Amino acid sequence: MPAYAPPGWPREVLPPDAPDWEASAVKWFLDLCPPEYRRYEGLRRHPVVLARFAVVHVEADQAAVKRGLSSVRVDLRDYCTPPVVEAAAQTFLLEDARLTGVRRAVGLVEEALRGRRYRPRL
């Protein structure tokens, strides 16, 4: 069966079992994570470890966005006009939606690095 990537798989990462797919996953994770992660040889050499770091990083971003959304209207109401405050809240909502997709993608790649293989559903 040819390599298959499920819905939500990142475009930047080759499907599992394609030639060099793990290298493409490492590159994508390093692009996704803080630049400091490139300094750590253990992360670059062990894709499963890097995947776990990426999951934790994305989940922390999600928590930060949720915290920001929960307080943005109160935090900014004395400093910005209502339309600006609402635009900030909408930006948090957009970022939350983006991060939801990123979290799914990171999880799919992590599972594949741990040995899971996906098959197309009919």
Rank of each mutant, 00 (worst) to 15 (best):
residue 18 A to F: 09
residue 19 P to M: 04
residue 19 P to V: 08
residue 21 W to C: 05
residue 21 W to T: 01
residue 22 E to Q: 15
residue 22 E to M: 14
residue 23 A to I: 13
residue 23 A to L: 14
residue 26 V to A: 02
residue 26 V to C: 13
residue 27 K to F: 08
residue 27 K to D: 09
residue 29 F to C: 12
residue 31 D to E: 12
residue 34 P to A: 06
residue 34 P to S: 05
residue 35 P to M: 01
residue 35 P to V: 06
residue 35 P to R: 08
residue 35 P to Q: 01
residue 37 Y to P: 05
residue 37 Y to I: 07
residue 37 Y to H: 09
residue 38 R to E: 10
residue 39 R to F: 11
residue 39 R to D: 14
residue 39 R to A: 14
residue 44 R to H: 06
residue 49 V to H: 06
residue 50 L to T: 03
residue 52 R to Q: 11
residue 52 R to F: 10
residue 53 F to Q: 01
residue 53 F to K: 05
residue 54 A to C: 06
residue 56 V to Y: 07
residue 56 V to P: 00
residue 60 A to T: 13
residue 61 D to M: 08
residue 61 D to P: 00
residue 62 Q to K: 10
residue 64 A to G: 11
residue 65 V to E: 11
residue 68 G to S: 06
residue 69 L to A: 11
residue 73 R to F: 00
residue 74 V to C: 00
residue 75 D to V: 13
residue 75 D to N: 13
residue 77 R to P: 04
residue 78 D to W: 13
residue 79 Y to I: 14
residue 81 T to H: 13
residue 81 T to R: 12
residue 82 P to I: 10
residue 83 P to S: 06
residue 84 V to M: 13
residue 84 V to L: 15
residue 85 V to E: 08
residue 87 A to F: 10
residue 87 A to T: 14
residue 89 A to D: 11
residue 90 Q to A: 08
residue 93 L to A: 07
residue 94 L to C: 10
residue 94 L to E: 15
residue 95 E to H: 01
residue 95 E to K: 06
residue 96 D to T: 04
residue 96 D to C: 02
residue 97 A to G: 03
residue 100 T to W: 09
residue 103 R to D: 03
residue 103 R to E: 05
residue 104 R to S: 07
residue 105 A to S: 10
residue 105 A to Q: 02
